[in-house]
Write a protein that binds this DNA or RNA. Structure first.
Length: 891
RNA sequence: GGGCGGCUAGCUCAGCUGGUCAGAGCGCCUGGUUUACACCCAGGAGGUCGGGGGUUCGAUCCCCUCGCCGCCCACCA
């Protein structure tokens, strides 16, 4: 006998091990059964190897697992490929922090080799956490194929891609402005910048003209950059400054002569119309400098201190200290012309949180513009589709305005760039040092000393290859052949640019096909107030605590049911509790079946059932199966969850089980046997349909409910997905049970409103029933009497005195509640019901009396309204009659 | 400045291609030892679907506009 509740804690680890040991997570299982099995593949968005599971991972991986399990049950060869990302900057940051916290030497003092060793040690220590946690979520990944972005195979793929792109002219080294993070002392890409709005000031500075004839005023939010100014620009058409173009100003403090140039970049509307040009420290100014052949003066060190290019009194100063000093100095010189408060955005490093600087350095760039073209075309053609579709707008917008991708990072944790330099700076880009050596030998005609590039690649460079590098590329593997392109990628919108777009570019370039046919963008999980979860806010919900408290299935069901939200999921604990209760409900339905000896019957065919409730539930199973199948096929996870919830609770438990009780405790052995088999069958269907969302509970019940029946052919994880057959929905049975439900509901409602004690049984008569209703009444007498707690159920020519009446189709129901009836209450009840029908009638009448409606509305709608009117009118007439009888009685 | 979401019952949200769409869960109220389940059962209260305008025979659902809330991109004269 089943316990009263499901105990997830004791079941989950055992079942997970059982699944994994069975080989069910591997696609080979399906291929053994059917070598032609359709492949279905998903690559996991690789979490940070040293990370731990947060609620976003829980959502993302739950949805992937739902898909994997669904397709697996449909007999497809499912590969869900797991793995982790080395997450260069993030991981390096963590280890650096640890070193600092422990009072150890920093990475620079420690040296590259020792530091990288530390990171590997940290990876070894914490690296398994996230994958262990994925297992606790029930993730049915194929762990035998687990990959890591820094493992040997993936590193080889990275080198191959780098070298190929270089040799194809799609990757190059260039000296230009990059976004520099002074905290990590590395270049970062534009995507790693976070714009923060801050209160600031414009300082207006006067630059004196060389000839002493006056001054020109410029404004800046970064006064310290004036030391790097090499021009002042004015608009060529700006009349105010025509006479100054070509003249020079003496740049204060730096004491340099710099030209006044005419450039359309200067906006006469802004500020004074004259703008200082600092080509080495501003992206726009860089362009202006290029156009006018201006020198670039870099005034910053990698730590963002002023360097030796500036007057000695400022050299070595931190940029923000220097800012104040410059302002003071300009003021002292009498050249500060004003300060205007402003609110403006300042770029910060998304990881470091410090203000980043445009900085002139040598970096490696990928020609993203060229690679983006096929990636744009593929989505335009529909080779890859976003779900929901509107994300393609975001994708297109970015892809069409894409900038060169800076892929080098001045970090140590990552893929070292496969570039070697000869003594004269000649560069050799090869996949291995040996190959580079050979190339150098060919070039120099002798062996020379080579120095490998110090930098590593952006983490996203290796992530971009993930859908094919993990399948064995550049080797031509069977997996690559079978599983590329992958079927669906499940990820969140915040990495569409970082990751999805770049996978598209690399996949199309190297595999000549999209990396995935569909991208499902899942929502972001927030706390119940809608705030982004963060450690600093202290509102982080640990998914594993929810698993501990409510069970994995409850969390999974919650996330699945709420996944329809456009952008955010506001997670409230109460929802998880509610869905835990749902699991318990199903558990108890199974318990009921067990107590009533409802066991699966070998060879049972639901098509042959005779009992009306069995025909009815068979149709409900068919409809639910169709709804769930369609929803999961379309990634409409919330709809699947909703359909399952309603079926299990509101259909199977609330009505089928209750309607079956009289049969199960009755004398009709044939009906009883059929109902037992049908109940067991229905439960089996429910377990199957629910398995992708709630794998543990359903697998456990699949096992437990087989105790007295024929053995299960397999674990539920590998059981075949239900397929409804034509004819399972029986409209007659459906209408009949709907009628029974309506009747029972009416009686219950009246009893509650009239305060009839629950234990009291009351007689019910039907007046004016037609032949069909009489037949329904006969067939369902037992169940109606039980559910409506009737003393008797008969037909009569007229309603008895002291009865509460209600309309039911063509008939009138009269519930004799003589002992309990409260005339005033009954009058109120009837009046309220009459009023309800009256408002319906008025509403429908308005339509039917409207000439335009009658002329233009489709026939079906008109007919529907006529029917509705007729029904409401008969119902109202019955209740009015009842009301009249009541008044007569009261006289 | 450009773009994208959201605004429906006290709370969290469903309402797909305009005509039973005004719904669910939680919460609340009333009643309940009905042989699966109190993590339950039965019944009930509660919303002029953000405001205004328009299209239509008919709009929560389409269009315009305004108002909040949130996000993304661009912008540091």
């Amino acid at each position: 006998m089943l316990e009263k509740t499901f105990d997830p804690a004791s079941v989950e680890p055992r079942l997970y091990d059982q699944w994994e040991a069975s080989g069910a997570f591997r696609p080979e299982r399906a291929l053994e059964r059917d070598p032609a099995a359709k492949p279905f593949s998903i690559v996991i968005p690789p979490p940070n190897v040293t990370g731990s599971l947060h609620i976003g991972h829980a959502l993302n991986n739950t949805l992937q697992d739902v898909l994997a399990r669904f397709h697996r049950m449909r007999g497809e060869a499912v590969l869900w490929l797991p793995g982790t990302d080395h997450a260069g900057i993030a991981t390096q940051m963590v280890v650096e922090r640890q070193l600092a916290a422990a009072g150890n030497a920093g990475r620079r003092e420690m040296g590259r080799e020792a530091f990288v060793e530390k990171v590997w040690a940290w990876k070894a220590e914490s690296g398994g956490t996230i994958t262990r946690q994925l297992r606790r979520l029930g993730a049915s990944c194929d762990w035998s194929r687990e990959r890591f972005t820094l493992d040997e195979g993936l590193s080889a793929a990275v080198r191959k891609v780098f070298v190929s792109l270089y040799k194809q002219g799609l990757l190059y080294r260039d000296k230009r402005l990059v976004i520099w993070d002074p905290q990590f002392q590395t270049a970062i890409s534009d995507l790693e910048v976070e714009q923060r709005e801050v209160d600031g000031q414009y300082w207006r500075f006067a630059y004196p003209l060389e000839d002493g004839s006056g001054e020109i005023v410029v404004a800046t939010t970064r006064p310290e950059t004036m030391l790097g100014d090499t021009a002042v620009a004015v608009h060529p058409d700006d009349e105010r400054y025509q006479h100054l173009i070509g003249k020079k100003v003496r740049l204060p403090i730096a004491d340099r002569l710099i030209p006044i140039v005419a450039d359309a970049y200067a906006d006469p509307e802004k500020g004074s119309g004259a703008v200082k040009i600092t080509p080495a420290h501003d992206f726009n100014d860089f362009q202006v400098g290029k156009r006018h052949g201006l020198p670039l003066i870099n005034i910053l060190t990698p730590e963002a201190k002023l360097n030796d290019e500036v007057p000695a009194e400022f050299a070595g100063m931190d940029r923000f200290v220097a800012r104040k000093a410059i302002i003071q100095h300009m003021d002292d010189l009498g050249l500060l012309r004003g300060i205007d408060p402003t609110r403006h955005v300042v770029p910060h490093g998304d990881r470091s949180g410090v203000v980043v600087e445009p900085y002139l350095t040598d970096q490696w760039y990928v020609d993203a513009k060229t690679l983006a073209q096929p990636a744009i075309a593929a989505v335009e053609r529909g080779d890859m589709v976003f779900e929901p579709k509107n994300w393609e707008r975001t994708y297109f917008e970015w892809m069409r305005n894409i900038e060169p991708w800076c892929v080098s990072r001045q970090l140590w944790w990552g893929h070292r760039i496969p570039a070697w330099y000869g003594p004269d700076g000649e560069v050799f880009i090869e996949e291995t040092e040996e190959a580079a050596r050979a190339a150098a030998r060919a070039h120099f005609g002798r062996d020379v000393e080579l120095r490998q590039d110090e930098d590593v690649l952006d983490t996203w460079f290796s992530s971009a290859l993930w859908p094919f590098s993990t399948l064995g590329w550049p080797q031509k593997t069977a997996d690559l052949e079978r599983f590329y392109p992958t079927s669906t990628l499940v990820t969140s919108f915040d990495i569409i640019f970082f990751w999805v777009a770049r996978m598209m570019m690399m996949g199309l370039h190297f595999m000549d096909d999209v990396p995935f046919k569909r991208v499902f963008i899942n929502a972001l999980v927030r706390d119940e107030k809608g705030q982004k979860m963060s450690k600093s806010k202290g509102n982080v919900i640990d998914p594993l605590e929810l698993v501990d408290e409510y069970g994995c299935d409850a969390l999974r069901f919650t996330l699945t049911a709420m996944s329809g939200q456009a952008r955010d999921i506001k997670l409230a604990k109460g929802r998880v509790e509610g869905y835990r209760n749902f699991g318990t409900k199903l558990w108890n339905a199974a318990r009921f079946c067990q107590m009533n000896e409802c066991v699966s019957v070998a060879g049972f065919d639901p098509a042959g059932v005779e009992q009306v409730i069995n025909k009815w539930i068979r149709g409900e199973v068919a409809k639910t199966t169709e709804a769930v199948t369609r929803a999961l096929t379309d990634c409409a996870f919330d709809e699947a969850a909703g359909a399952l919830y309603r079926f299990v609770w509101n259909v199977f438990c609330d009505w089928y089980v209750e309607l079956a009780k009289p049969i199960l405790s009755g004398e009709d052995e044939v009906a009883k046997a059929e109902t037992r088999a049908m109940a067991a069958w229905t439960l089996d269907q429910a377990l199957k349909l629910l398995h992708p969302v709630s794998p543990f509970l359903t697998e456990e019940l699949w096992d437990k409910t087989a105790e007295f029946g024929p053995p299960r052919g397999s674990l539920l994880i590998e059981a075949p997905w239900p397929e409804p057959r034509a004819g399972w929905v029986d409209p007659e049975a459906e209408a009949e049970i709907d009628w029974v439900i309506a009747l029972v509901s009416e009686v219950r409602s009246i009893r509650a409103e009239m305060n009839v004690p629950p234990s009291a049984r009351t007689p019910l008569v039907l007046v004016g029933a037609d032949a069909r209703t009489r037949a329904r009444l006969e067939r369902n007498r037992d169940r109606i009497s039980t559910l409506a707690r009737l003393q008797s159920l008969e037909e009569a020519a007229s309603p008895p005195a002291g009865s509460a009446q209600f309309a039911l189709g063509e008939a009138t129901g009269a519930l004799t509640i003589a002992g309990f009836i409260d005339l005033a209450a009954e009058r109120a009840r009837l009046s309220k019901a009459v009023a309800g029908f009256e408002s319906d009638i008025a509403h429908v009448r308005r339509k039917l009396d409207n000439v335009a409606f009658m002329a233009k509305a489709p026939e079906a709608v008109v007919a529907e309204n006529r029917e509705k009117l007729a029904e409401a009118e008969t119902a109202k007439a019955k209740l009015e009659a009842a009301l009249a009888r009541l008044e007569a009685m009261a006289q």
